[in-house]
Design a binder for these strands. Structure first.
Length: 770
DNA sequence: GTATAAACACTTTTT
DNA sequence: GTGTTTATAC
C-alpha cells in the first residue's frame, strides 16, 4: 500500500506500524521513537480506510494525547483527527461513564473528586468513626482504598480477602475494610467518583451490562495504548475486554521505564502481554535516536543490574560524547552553586540555551536550593510540579461553588464553601448536618432541603442561615440551563463574595489571588468561545467542570516559559528530553528513597527511575551528590547513592580532588564571591583544613581537627558549648549545643542574623575564637 | 463561632 | 523550612 510517510521510519518501526492483523506489543527503548510509531500507526490505519471514530488511543497524560493528536492532524488533517477517540484513560472513560451513567446509578453530571477531596473525605470518616488518626493516617487509608479499587476489589470483596485483612491487621489498621465501605457509600451519596472510580466503574459497567460492552467493542475497531508498562489491573482489564472481540490492539511501552507501581501500575501487564494475547507479535525498537553512545551505554549498564526485564539491546549511532560527570559537594547549598556554575559554563562552551537544560531531582523539596542558586545568577528557570493552578485555594473555592451548584449532593464542595465566606455556619453545625445525613442515608443537601423532616437539631437562627445558603445555591442552580458558563461563574464570583477577603488590602498575595481568579474566568471564557465556534448554542457550566476536573497544571503551558531551565522531579521528566541533564541529590536516603529500600522490587523501580533520569539527556549528563543536606529542618549526612556504583565506571568522570580553580575575575557580587571561595575551599581540599586557602592563621585562632569516622560516640566535644566560633559564610556565632550523630560531631550554633545552624565539625570549617 | 498560636507532618503522583 | 491542621483563648 502507498503510505507516503513510511520512508520516515526505520525498519523495525515500519514493521511495528504496518502490522495490523492482530495484537502487537511494541517494546520501545528510551528515545527509540515510541510516539512516532504510535502516530504513524494511527495515520496508517486511517490510510487503510479505517474511520477515525473507530480508533481508540489511550495515553496517561492529557499532554501526550494532545501532542499526538496534533501530530496526526498535521499528517491527515484536523477534520479527520478530531474524530479520533484519543485521550487519557480517565478522560475517555469518564466520557463513556457520563453517557452511560444511568446504568450504574450515577447522574450524567457526577462530580469527580480529586485527591484532596478524597483526603478530606477519608479524614472525616476516620474522625466520625472515632479512630486514632495517628494509626489511620489519611495517606495509608487512601493508598489502601486506591489499591483495592485498582485491583477491582469492591468493599464486599475486601471483606472476603483474607490476605488484605491480614495485612491490615498486621499494620494495626484492621478497620480499613469499614472505612473503605463507608468511603464508597459517601461518594455514591455525593454523586461523586474519585479518579480510581473512573476505571473501577467502567469495569462495573462492562461487567454488568454485556450489551453496553458489546456496543463499545464494535465502536472501537482498533485500540492503541501508550506507556503500557504503567497500566494497572483495572486498566488492563478494560483494554482486554474491549479488545476481546477483534484482538486488534497495539500496546507500546518500555518495561525499563516503569516507575509508577506505587500508584498501582503492574509491570506484569507488559511482561505477560504474550500470555494475554496468544498470537501477539512483538516488535522491539532498540535504536536510540536521542542520546550519545556514552549515555545510552551508561544507562544500559545501570539497568542491567535489574533482574526483572524484557531482554533488549538499546544502542545509539550517535557520537560517543562526553562521559557522565559526577559532582561531589559538601552541602546542598553548594550543590546548587556548582550546578548553576556548570550551567553557565555549558552555555558559554556549548552555546546551549536555557531550554536545553534540565535539573532533575527525586523530591520536590530539593527544588528550593536549586532555585536560590539560579536566582543568584539571574538564570531563568521554570519549576514544574508543586501547587498547580487548580489546587490554589482561591481557584478551589470558586470551583467548589460551581461544583455544588451543578451537583448539590457534592459533600466535599459543600464543606468547603458552606461557611466561606463566613456566614455563621460553624463546625458543629456542619458536623450535625453530616451526621444527620449519614443517619438517614441521604446527602447533606437532602437534609438542607427539608430540615424539619429529618429533625436536624439546630436552633432557629442557624436553621435560618442554612436555609439562606440553600436558597442561594438554588438560585444559581436554576440558571444553569439558560446561562453560559462564563456569565454564571462571573455572577457567582461577584455575588457570593468568594474572593472578597482578597480586597481588604493590596498585598502581593491578594493581588495574585485576584489575578488567578481572573485567569480562571478567562479560561472559562475561552471554553465558551470554543464551544460556540464548534456550533453549540450555549456552553454550560457542567460541561466546563467535566472538562477541567481531569486537567493538571502541565496542560497550561505559557509562552513566557520558553527559554528557561527546567526544574522537575524525575517522575515528571518521563517522556521529555534535554541536551544537558543535571541529576541532583544522588545520595543514599534520598535516591533511592528510604521508603523504597525494603524490598528488591521497590529498589528495582528506583533504579528504573534513575535510568529514566539518565536517558533524558541527549549530550551531557551530570550527577551530583552532597555529603550533607538540610532536610525537614535538620542537617543530615549522607553517602553517595549505591546507584552510582551500578554504572560502569568507564562512562563516568569521577571527581578528582584537584587543585583549586583559578579564581575568575568577573562580575560576581560579593555574596557569590564568598560562596565560590567557600566552595573551592571545601570541594577541592581533601583535608578539612587546608592551609593553602586559609590566610595565615592568627595565633588566637585554634583549628578544629576533623574527627575521622569515629564509631565510638564521644561525649566530650572538641568544641566547647558557649564558645564563639567563626564560619566562612555565616560569620561569628555562639555554640549552643554539641552532640554526636553516627560518630560525627555536630554543633548547633547561633549565628545571630544568619540564624541557627546545625553543622558537622567534620565538614564545617570552624575556627574557635579564644 | 471566630481569631490566634502552637503543633504537626513531610516520597514519587500521568488522572 | 513550609504549609496545614489542631488546640486554645476570646
Amino acid at each position: 500500500m502507498d503510505f507516503p510517510f513510511l520512508n520516515e521510519l526505520n525498519e523495525s518501526q515500519q514493521k511495528a506500524v504496518t502490522y495490523t492483523d492482530g495484537a502487537s506489543l511494541v517494546i520501545a527503548g528510551a528515545g527509540s521513537g515510541k510516539t512516532r510509531v504510535l502516530t504513524y500507526k494511527i495515520a496508517y490505519l486511517l490510510q487503510t480506510g479505517m474511520a477515525p471514530g473507530s480508533i481508540l488511543a489511550l495515553t496517561f497524560t492529557n499532554k501526550a494525547a494532545r501532542e499526538m493528536k496534533e501530530r496526526i492532524a498535521d499528517m491527515v488533517g484536523i477534520n479527520t483527527a478530531r474524530y479520533l477517540w484519543m485521550g487519557t484513560f480517565h478522560a475517555i472513560f469518564s466520557r463513556i461513564l457520563r453517557s452511560e451513567a444511568e446504568h450504574i446509578g450515577y447522574s450524567k453530571n457526577f462530580t469527580i473528586y480529586d485527591s484532596a477531596d478524597s483526603k478530606s473525605l477519608v479524614k472525616s470518616i476516620v474522625k466520625e468513626m472515632k479512630l486514632d488518626d495517628k494509626l489511620y493516617k489519611h495517606g495509608v487509608v487512601q493508598s489502601r482504598i486506591s489499591y483495592a479499587k485498582n485491583n477491582l476489589i469492591t468493599p464486599d470483596a475486601y471483606l472476603g480477602n483474607t490476605d488484605l485483612l491480614k495485612a491490615d491487621n498486621a499494620s494495626r489498621v484492621p478497620l480499613i475494610k469499614d472505612i473503605y465501605k463507608i468511603y464508597c457509600n459517601r461518594c455514591k451519596q455525593a454523586d461523586a467518583m474519585d479518579f480510581d472510580d473512573l476505571l473501577l466503574q467502567t469495569n462495573v459497567l462492562f461487567r454488568n451490562h454485556p450489551d453496553i460492552l458489546n456496543k463499545y467493542q464494535n465502536i472501537f475497531k482498533y485500540i492503541l495504548v501508550d506507556e503500557y508498562q504503567d497500566t494497572n489491573f483495572a486498566q488492563y482489564l478494560i483494554v482486554k475486554k474491549l479488545a476481546e472481540l477483534h484482538e486488534k490492539i497495539c500496546v507500546v511501552g518500555d518495561d525499563a521505564q516503569s516507575i509508577y507501581s506505587f500508584r498501582g501500575a503492574n509491570i506484569d501487564n507488559i511482561l505477560q502481554f504474550k500470555n494475554t494475547y496468544k498470537n501477539a507479535q512483538v516488535f522491539k525498537l532498540e535504536q536510540n535516536y536521542r542520546s550519545t553512545k556514552t549515555i545510552v551505554n551508561a544507562a544500559n549498564s545501570l539497568i542491567d543490574k535489574n533482574s526483572k526485564q524484557i531482554k533488549k539491546t538499546v544502542f545509539s549511532e550517535k557520537e560517543v560524547g562526553k562521559p557522565i560527570k559526577i559532582l561531589s559537594v559538601f552541602t546542598d547549598y553548594e550543590e546548587g552553586f556548582v550546578v548553576a556554575n556548570s550551567i553557565a559554563d555549558l552555555r558559554h562552551s556549548q552555546n546551549y540555551r536555557f531550554q536545553d537544560i534540565a535539573i532533575l531531582y527525586r523530591t520536590n523539596s530539593q527544588s528550593r536550593v536549586m532555585e536560590e542558586a539560579l536566582r543568584k545568577q539571574n538564570t531563568p528557570y521554570r519549576i514544574y510540579g508543586g501547587l498547580s493552578f487548580y489546587q490554589r485555594k482561591e481557584i478551589k473555592d470558586v470551583i467548589a461553588y460551581c461544583r455544588l451548584i451543578c451537583n448539590p449532593n457534592d459533600e466535599e464542595a459543600m464543606k468547603r464553601i458552606i461557611n466561606y465566606p463566613a456566614r455563621g455556619i460553624g463546625e458543629t453545625t456542619v458536623n450535625k448536618l453530616i451526621d444527620c445525613a449519614q443517619l438517614h442515608a441521604v446527602s447533606a443537601w437532602d437534609i438542607l432541603n427539608d430540615m424539619l423532616k429529618y429533625n436536624l437539631a439546630v436552633n432557629a437562627g442557624t436553621a435560618n442561615k442554612l436555609a439562606q445558603f440553600r436558597a442561594m445555591i438554588d438560585i444559581f442552580a436554576e440558571q444553569i440551563p439558560t446561562q453560559n458558563a462564563y456569565d454564571l461563574v462571573n455572577s457567582i464570583v461577584k455575588t457570593t463574595g468568594v474572593i472578597s477577603d482578597t480586597y481588604i488590602d493590596r498585598s502581593p498575595e491578594n493581588m495574585s489571588k485576584q489575578e488567578n481568579v481572573q485567569e480562571l474566568l478567562k479560561a472559562i471564557h475561552e471554553f465558551c468561545e470554543a464551544k460556540q465556534q464548534a456550533g453549540e448554542s450555549i456552553a454550560l457550566l457542567p460541561d466546563y467542570l467535566a472538562e477541567i476536573s481531569l486537567l493538571t497544571d502541565q496542560d497550561t503551558d505559557k509562552e513566557t516559559d520558553k527559554d528557561k531551565i527546567t526544574l522537575m522531579t524525575v517522575h515528571a521528566a518521563k517522556g521529555l528530553e534535554f541536551k544537558a541533564v543535571f541529576i541532583v541529590g544522588m545520595e543514599e536516603e534520598l535516591f533511592p528513597s528510604p521508603f523504597c529500600t525494603q524490598s528488591e522490587r521497590e529498589l528495582e523501580e528506583e533504579r528504573r527511575l534513575f535510568y529514566v533520569a539518565i536517558t533524558r539527556a541527549e549530550e551531557r549528563c551530570f550527577i551530583s551528590y552532597s555529603k550533607s543536606r538540610f532536610k525537614n529542618g535538620k542537617t543530615n549526612f549522607s553517602n553517595p547513592s549505591r546507584f552510582i556504583r551500578d554504572i560502569d565506571e568507564q562512562f563516568l568522570d569521577m571527581p578528582v580532588e584537584a587543585k583549586p580553580k583559578q579564581a575568575r575575575i568577573g562580575d560576581w557580587d560579593d555574596d557569590v564571591e564568598i560562596e565560590r571561595n567557600r566552595f573551592n575551599k571545601l570541594a577541592f581540599s581533601k583535608p578539612v583544613i587546608d592551609d593553602n586557602f586559609t590566610a595565615p592563621i592568627p595565633k588566637r585562632l585554634v583549628k578544629i581537627e576533623s574527627t575521622k569516622e569515629t564509631k565510638i560516640p564521644t561525649t566530650n566535644s572538641s568544641i566547647p558549648v558557649g564558645a564563639f566560633v567563626k564560619h566562612s559564610m555565616f560569620g561569628i556565632g555562639k555554640v549552643l549545643e554539641t552532640s554526636t550523630v553516627d560518630g560525627n560531631e555536630k554543633a548547633d550554633i547561633d549565628f545571630g542574623e544568619k540564624g541557627r545552624k546545625s553543622l558537622l565539625l567534620k565538614f564545617a570549617k570552624l575556627e574557635v575564637l579564644n
